[in-house]
Amino acid sequence: MAEQSRPFLLLAREAARDLLRGRTTVVLAGLCLLALLATHSCTGCFQGTAVVHGEEIDLSRFAGVASLPLLVILGLGTQLLAAALAEEALRRPLETGSASLWLVRPIRRETYAAARLAGALAVAGGIGLLLFGSAIALLALRQELDPEPALLAAAASGLGATALGALSMLGSLFLPRIATLGLTLGLLSATLLANTASLLGGRLEGVLGAIDRIGPPLFAAVVLPLADWAPWLPIRGNSLEVALRLGLWALLAVVLVLAVFRRIDLR
């Protein structure tokens, strides 16, 4: 495998450059700017005091609860971005036929697919790091919140991005783009619903129950570490167990997409 590390790095860098060419860069830069403005605005709330019914209340008490949705949105957004980029990363060279030019070189199919996925995850991860880093720094400075839960949530988002990205890439091998993105969004939404109900103590049956118990805990893994910021919220769950399950999903999804890509015909 060592002889495949150099091609992997070359191809991963090229995949990231591919994804950042043209209009995508403008769209991503615009989204980043909006997210940074929202982060700046959201982390500025809950400073100082407010008077309610004549009683002065320190607003920083609510900083944790208020910051939780911000980081959850950043986490889910990073996962969705990774899925969209990973879908594009392999579909485009397969559609144009340029994948064949690379794959006649002495590289493994798995190396090529892993490099394309790594390129997509590097772009999404870079943006995620920028946004999470800004939010964590601003929350620590303005609200004096402990950064550890946010760092754990960021790490969980990375695992979720890997799992969702690999599943989305797998879908792109067989389905049109709109169908793959629809299914990806559907999985994320269903997981959001199922995990929310479960985290709040609900008992789910049927498909949602199955998604919650054995599916990738894309939402729960981000929320659970942040529960330390708002201990009075009725959030239940074992964050280590959930993170391990998400890690296992990420590993399985990557192995699956590589194994399937090895077996498909490139026409």
Partner: peptide, 22 residues
Amino acid sequence: PLDPEARRGVGYLPERLALPPE
């Protein structure tokens, strides 16, 4: 042919050449 070593020292020109335009 799936073994990368089999393809070492192989040059290929496809019928429909797809070069990355950028």
